[in-house]
Design a protein around this nucleic acid. Structure first.
Length: 782
DNA sequence: TACCAGAGGAG
DNA sequence: AAATCCTCTGGTA
């Protein structure tokens, strides 16, 4: 280790949070650092709020703006706009809160063209301009992470914070401290982490006290934004008390974030793992237990939370012990998930230069934009304004042609090779310089520039902001992967892997960003050009493959599945395939590559986007079929999986038929458990906005009448029961259904049979043959 | 039976 | 508050 590195280690620090305050009529930026010895708040009082004004008459505009109250300074500066250096006015103002009003007034001036960069939050503006990287060296500083979870009294179903008290708070942190605080003794229950306090108020106070004493840097919750923190705040308010978890004792602030809330803790970032999990994992449900199982392959202790109030009232030792253990497991589980999830969030915060509280709650469009804004500043590019609601809505109406999907050759095939283009869209952006500022440039003659089949051309002389940014992301990813390969320390390996994941996430989001109606660098033409070029490359590859003697079985966007019909020697097919991709790659522009992605001894293609493949280990890979969908029941999905295995692995259609017959019998006897019959469907719009209510909506409405809450974004878990007329009428939220109360006919005719029939039909069995499943089915079909 | 709204997957 | 392409279900007339 060199001298420099030792110095760096000694002066390790990481910026956890940033905000500003106004003191003596002056804006003061506050930087919340964790340093090796503890915490530090640094203040910057010489950074001034500013924005830009474009005008036809700079001098005239300047004179008008200078007269306005709150304006400190107006200067003429050079900025870059669509590759041209232009002169604009930089308006420096006294306080950040002056900006919206001044912006409005200046916009009305006669000579003003646009007011620019006035909507960038002041603290974020400072981060961009200063070049400070949030969360830098966070991993080296051994941040203290804590999680907590509430249990509340719920006698009427959904707990109401005005009436229903907290029963306990569980807490766990990365130093190993584990606690459950409650305020009532349960005779005969003693647990080392259980602490009995005098009342609810003391329980809340103890949480706050512990977070302070333990010097916690990051707070994790599971749905703390919309449940734990709002509830805690309201219960605390009952005792005229603040939830003063901020590093300076300030209270938790709830901010509106679209339809939801965000719970912000000053200087001690609160990371809600729930929205992150919804973004990262594709699951049927996002309960803590479900996500925990997905992440660690282990069950987390669970109880029926609807019974909480009864258990509390009964205060029976056995049951209460279960509740304490469950509560503790929630905090411990949330902490464990946090420790696994946070590194990627730190990395995204570093790359986009946005504090982790905010970046962990951003969607992919916002994240890409944050990164581009930072890069634009470095290149002195004037950032375009956000579109108005009207323009955004207008943009949403226009659509464009996207990817190409090959009609599959239905049925079973042997010896299948998969090729795909590595990062097709990012590599097209780079190799064809797809950028709004490069489109139809004046400096290149049309025929000399990069051509898009959609009719646009792109400059060959000057690299645009977006291709340059994507190029940098990909370059950094290549380097991270190289270091990952050379690294032997498992911990460092994990960090490098997270880094390359984050870089991939961002570069893959850039294409979608172009067509995102609220994007400041929106360009439908660029999105269109990328998609058109993608179609061109895949079309050309398909043609070349056919010329090479391959049968093209299927393809979607950037992939093609091929085989050689009649060729039994898989080694020959693989060798020929590798030769083919080599030939293709010689013709591709730099940065683009067709990869040999895999070999599958057998596969079945049903329709576009629906197929199954078996790899050389005998593992089934299924795409698009019911097995992959949360809105199908387990009975249907499990039967489908077994049928696929019987056909692809055992090559035994009779076995497939037996499986189906067996399952149909099982359903008829009424022995199937509710867990295997539930269907999960999301409420994607407001409950009153539905023109046509499907079964999940009707089931949710019934549950609402019985005291349950359902809102947009929730996933309804329902069962089709015996009683009622239509399917919707029979659909009920599972919590209200007794074991055994299910509609056998529905599960046979609308679940199991359709899921397996489609596969069998693709093999050439007629529906008539399938009606008497098993009887006529023989190996002849193969 | 034909059509539409709605959902969720693929890439 | 990233995009389009695509299949399939259940309600409605």
């Amino acid at each position: 280790m060199g001298f420099r590195n030792i110095i760096t280690l000694l002066n390790m620090e990481t910026l956890l949070d940033i905000d500003y305050t106004v003191r003596d009529e002056k804006a003061v930026i506050r930087l919340y650092y964790k340093v090796d010895k503890g915490r530090e708040i640094r203040e910057i009082d010489d950074f001034e709020p500013h924005f830009y004004v474009t005008s036809d008459d700079l001098e005239g505009s300047k004179k008008n703006i200078e007269k306005l109250d709150g304006v400190v300074k107006v200067e003429t500066v050079k900025k870059v706009e669509v590759r041209q250096e232009i002169e604009v006015l930089k308006v420096t103002v006294k306080l950040p809160q002056n900006v919206p009003e001044l912006r409005g007034e200046i916009k009305e001036f006669e000579n003003t063209k646009e007011v620019r960069e006035a909507a960038i939050p002041f603290a974020e503006r400072y981060l961009i301009n200063s070049g400070i990287v949030p969360m830098e060296d966070a991993e080296q500083l051994d941040l203290r992470i804590a999680s907590f979870d509430l249990e509340v009294y719920n006698p009427r179903g959904e707990p109401k914070s005005e009436k229903d008290p907290l029963l306990m708070i569980s807490y766990a942190d990365s130093t190993g401290l584990k606690k459950v605080w409650t305020y009532r003794e349960t005779p005969g229950v003693s647990l080392d982490y259980l602490e009995i306090l005098s009342d609810e108020k003391e329980v809340i106070k103890r949480l706050i006290q512990t977070v302070k004493e333990q010097e916690i840097d990051i707070l994790c919750t599971y749905n703390g934004d919309n449940f734990d923190f709002p509830y805690l705040n309201e219960r605390a308010a009952k005792y005229k008390m603040d939830v003063g978890l901020g590093i300076d004792g300030s209270k938790v602030r709830l901010e509106r974030r679209g339809m939801n809330l965000g719970a912000k803790v000053r200087g001690r970032p609160h990371i809600d793992l729930y929205p992150i999990c919804r973004q990262v994992f594709n699951l049927s449900r996002y309960t803590l237990e479900n996500v925990y199982l997905e992440m660690f392959g282990e069950e987390k202790k669970d109880i029926n939370a609807a019974e909480m109030h009864k258990i509390w009232d009964a205060n029976e030792p056995g049951e209460m012990k279960e509740v304490f253990e469950y509560s503790m497991a929630d905090a411990v589980g949330t902490l464990r998930m946090g420790l696994a999830i946070l590194p990627l969030q730190y990395e995204l915060s570093r790359i986009t230069r946005i504090p982790v509280y905010k970046s962990s709650r951003s969607g992919s469009g916002q994240r890409v934009e944050d990164l581009l804004i930072k890069r634009a500043y470095e290149k002195n590019i004037l950032i375009p304004n956000k579109p108005s609601d009207r323009i955004a809505t207008e943009r949403q109406k226009s659509s464009y042609v996207g990817a190409y999907v090959v009609e599959p050759k239905r049925g079973i095939h042997d010896n299948i090779v998969l090729f795909d283009f590595r990062s097709l869209y990012p590599s097209i952006i780079i190799s064809h310089n797809i950028d709004p500022s490069a489109m139809n440039c004046a400096c290149c003659k049309k025929e000399e520039a990069f051509q898009s089949p959609a009719g646009h051309h792109f400059c060959k002389k000057n690299v645009g902001l977006i291709p340059e940014t994507v190029g940098e992301l990909i370059q950094r990813r290549i380097e991270a992967k190289k270091r990952l390969k050379e690294e032997s320390d498992p911990e460092k390996k994990r960090f490098l892997d997270v880094e390359q994941q984050a870089l991939k996430l961002l570069s893959n989001s850039m294409y979608g960003y172009f067509a995102f109606a609220r994007a400041v660098w929106y360009s439908r033409e660029c999105a269109e050009a990328i998609a058109a070029l993608g179609r061109q490359y895949i079309h050309n590859t398909i043609e070349a493959a056919q010329k090479h003697g391959f049968d093209v079985l299927y393809g979607d966007t950037d992939s093609i599945y091929i085989t050689v019909s009649g060729e039994k020697d898989s080694k020959k097919i693989i060798a020929e395939s590798k030769k083919f991709s080599g030939e293709i790659n010689k013709e591709l522009p730099g940065g683009m590559e067709l990869e040999f992605e895999g070999f599958y001894p057998r596969g079945i293609f049903i329709t576009k986007k629906r197929y199954a493949l078996m790899d050389e280990k005998g593992t089934l890979l299924v795409k698009g079929l019911e097995v992959r969908r949360r809105d199908w029941s387990n009975v249907a999905k499990e039967t489908q999986t077994k049928v696929l295995n019987a056909l692809l692995k055992d090559k035994d259609p009779e076995k497939a038929a037996e499986i189906v017959k067996g399952m149909v019998q099982m359903i008829k006897t009424g022995d199937v458990k509710l867990d295997d019959l539930t269907i999960h469907t999301q409420i994607t719009r407001g409950m009153n906005e539905y023109v046509q209510a499907g079964p999940h909506i009707v089931a949710a409405r019934k549950a609402i009448k019985e005291g349950r809450e359902f809102k947009q974004g929730d996933i309804v878990t329902y069962v089709v029961t015996k009683t009622g007329t239509s399917i919707s009428d029979r659909a009920r939220v599972v919590d209200f259904v007794e074991e055994g109360d299910y509609d056998a006919n529905y599960y046979i005719n609308n679940q199991v049979l359709p899921a397996v029939m489609r596969i069998l039909e693709a093999l050439g069995y007629s529906e008539d043959e399938l009606k008497g499943l098993g009887k006529q089915m023989t190996l002849g079909g193969f």
